[in-house]
């Protein structure tokens, strides 16, 4: 437990001792606000945060891999992984410590979008339940993207490669669920396969949580996704840490 906490604390601190956290937060918050108001927030004449949540997957495709890419790639490149893995820390503790620290950081970033909530509350009477489930879905989605980013960061020593690979993987998972993609796929794929593609996508599950329905299958989708990619990350690290 000691070592898990130590890794977690160090990782979280390291975001804020480098300019990384501030650059990330400023850019994230700018685009979160910009995309929301650009896409008809006022024209809709409805006090809810739908435009904000709808744009989040697209924003996350770029922003989350940029926080995840350094997690292991940097550690392997600078050789500190040899230090970390010869301290009394298990791979599981190290992987979880780093992952949860990065997840907490992303949660903080999401929490800092609170002025949007205040805005809609000021403008009308939004459905608070809907906003809460929207945020829960966003946090889960951030975790899913992050787990994917963690995996690719462990796979490559090069941060740029890790970034590009995880952006592609995340983008595939998001766009697989877009109506246009599904329409196109249904022209030549059997129905069952199209449904399978749809239920593998982030978009589908995020949408249904965002509509205010917290269903077990959506929750278990994200939990499975996170656990799966994180486990794969641990296995890869154990294999490749010395290389």
């Amino acid at each position: 437990m000691n070592s898990f906490k130590a890794v977690f604390k160090r990782e979280l601190k390291s975001y804020f001792t480098t300019p990384l956290a501030y650059v990330f937060l400023v850019i994230f918050l700018f685009f979160a606000g910009y995309l929301t108001f650009k896409q008809g927030f006022f024209e809709m004449r409805q006090a809810d945060l739908r435009p904000f949540f709808q744009n989040l997957p697209l924003l996350f495709v770029f922003m989350v891999p940029s926080t995840a890419m350094r997690l292991w790639a940097e550690e392997r490149k600078s050789g500190t992984i040899e230090l970390l893995c010869t301290l009394p820390v298990t791979i599981t503790q190290a992987v979880l410590g780093k992952f949860l620290a990065a997840w907490l950081f992303l949660t903080i970033a999401l929490a800092l979008t609170f002025p949007l909530v205040i805005t809609v509350c000021y403008l009308g009477n939004p459905d608070i339940g809907l906003i809460i489930t929207g945020y829960i879905g966003s946090v889960l989605m951030a975790g899913g993207f992050l787990a994917i980013g963690c995996f690719f960061s462990a796979l490559s020593k090069n941060q740029v490669i890790a970034f590009v690979l995880s952006v592609v993987a995340c983008a595939i998972l998001v766009f697989a669920g877009m109506p246009t993609t599904l329409d196109y796929l249904s022209t030549f794929l059997p129905r069952g396969l199209v449904n399978a593609v749809e239920s593998m996508s982030f978009q589908t599950h995020f949408d249904s949580i965002q509509r205010g329905v917290l269903e077990l299958r959506d929750l278990s989708y994200f939990v499975l996704l996170i656990v799966g990619w994180i486990t794969a990350c641990g296995i890869i690290l154990d294999e490749r840490k010395a290389g």
């Binding site: 390291s14 480098t18 600078s78 050789g79 230090l83 301290l87 820390v89």
Partner: peptide, 25 residues
């Protein structure tokens, strides 16, 4: 002490040693 003495470059010496203490309990 590994070859080339890797350490977390963005940390201060004190912060780094405290981290090692944390890990080692």
């Amino acid at each position: 002490v590994p070859e080339n003495v890797p350490a977390y470059n963005e940390m201060t010496v004190g912060g780094f040693l405290n981290f090692i203490c944390d890990v080692r309990g």
